[in-house]
């Protein structure tokens, strides 16, 4: 009996949680997106005008394109930076491996707002960098003050620890003896890396990439505080609909579009990659 009910319990509880906390809010968002707002009032009549606006108004498409570019650039940079860091910890961390990997989680002990405001102070006109430059008689670096470049720095700062941790965990579970085997059979260290280590940790890398890419796509705080006049991203534009302008229905439609874009991208990646060859073991033996 216990065995018969165990799967239902162990799968049922997370399913109920997912339905209550994820599916229902998403459905409510979907419903809101087909209503409309008029001067801070929600008018409950079915229409697809919000989607028409998103399809025809180039401003929202620009925000989405900016977000896609920003998320791609930040995720690629984070992945490129995270690999040597995680690999270094695995190879040379010794008994301090755990400590080193935990050190990367330290920034998470403070809130995201605090981290962004601290960074604003660092990159701002009287921040550490420009302060030093100006005290040396040089002109302040305008490129790090309220630009998309500053936003990118902020996002890398926010999400690099996540990517490092995920790749570190992937490498931790990777059987290092496979590299030794490759070398014994004559592979150079580079070839062993690209033909053994990299492909067998590709799934972990993809997870790290996705955990950076998806929040970057909906980033609000970094572009708001660091991005400057040209730094509005899609997530920030969504936040504006729900906070300042009260155009909730349009904001809901933007949320639905963002969700659809994320699902589409994940589907494309899943289709392009053979997960069985990426170190993914979730398919079972079947």
């Amino acid at each position: 009996m216990r065995g018969r009910f165990a799967p239902a319990i162990f799968l049922g509880i997370p399913s109920v949680f997912l339905v209550a906390m994820f599916v229902l809010p998403l459905l409510s968002m979907l419903v809101l997106s087909i209503w409309r707002t008029e001067n801070y009032h929600i008018i409950q009549d079915f229409n697809l005008n919000n989607y028409r606006v998103l399809a025809t108004e180039t401003a929202y498409q620009t925000f989405l394109l900016r977000s896609l570019l920003m998320a791609t650039a930040v995720s690629v940079i984070c992945t490129v930076l995270a690999w040597p860091i995680a690999y270094g910890i695995i190879l040379y961390g010794g008994r301090y491996r755990l400590l080193l990997s935990l050190a990367f989680a330290v920034p998470f002990l403070t809130g995201e707002v605090l981290r962004i405001i601290a960074l604003q102070g660092l990159l701002g006109p009287i921040g550490l960098l420009n302060g030093v430059l100006m005290s040396l008689g040089a002109a302040p670096l305008r490129v790090i003050m309220y630009t998309n470049f500053a936003s990118a720095i902020g996002l890398i700062y926010l999400y690099l620890p996540i990517v490092v941790t995920v790749i570190y965990l992937s490498l931790l579970n990777f059987d290092q003896r496979l590299i030794d085997a490759a070398k014994i059979f004559g592979a150079s260290p580079a070839r062993a890396f690209f033909e053994v280590t990299w492909p067998l940790n590709l799934f972990g890398t993809l997870i790290g990439f996705a955990l950076c890419f998806i929040p970057c796509l909906s980033a609000t705080l970094a572009p708001r505080f660091l991005g400057g006049p040209n730094g509005t991203l899609f997530g920030m534009a969504i936040a504006q609909q729900f906070a300042e302008s009260g155009t909730w229905a349009l904001g809901a439609a933007m949320g639905v579009v963002l969700f659809a874009v994320c699902v589409l991208l994940v589907a494309i990646v899943a289709r392009l990659l053979d997960l069985r060859r990426t170190g993914f073991t979730g398919f079972g033996r079947g």
Partner: peptide, 19 residues
């Protein structure tokens, strides 16, 4: 005051931000 049409004003603001 409250904008006469928050929807129109939001559109103006978004177009400016995207420009």
């Amino acid at each position: 005051d409250q904008p006469s049409s928050t929807e129109k004003w939001e559109r103006v603001w978004s177009r400016m931000q995207a420009a």
